[in-house]
């Protein structure tokens, strides 16, 4: 199925969990936070949050800014 990940189309397996997607992305020890369709998904729910087709997933981090 197709999702929109940080603004780009990405094909992932049907019924994927957020934790599956994050594992594929190999974000390692980086600090990040995730929202799906403009709703925050807390870290504690990554393993149970099931993704749906056309979900808009944003993975964010801290960057330099004023």
């Amino acid at each position: 199925m197709n999702i929109l990940l940080n603004g780009e189309h990405r094909e992932i397996a049907e019924g994927s969990l957020m934790s599956d997607l994050l594992e594929q992305l190999a974000l390692g020890g980086q600090r990040f936070a995730v929202e799906v369709n403009a709703e925050l998904v807390p870290r504690s729910r990554f393993a149970e949050h099931r993704l749906n087709p056309e979900d808009k997933v944003e993975i964010i981090q801290a960057v330099g800014g004023g």
Binding site: N6, G7, L25, L27, G28, Q30, E58, I60, A62, G65
Partner: peptide, 12 residues
């Protein structure tokens, strides 16, 4: 700090 999209797959 600002909050922005993570650069996925680029220079981890």
């Amino acid at each position: 700090v600002a909050v922005r999209r993570t650069n996925l797959g680029q220079n981890p």
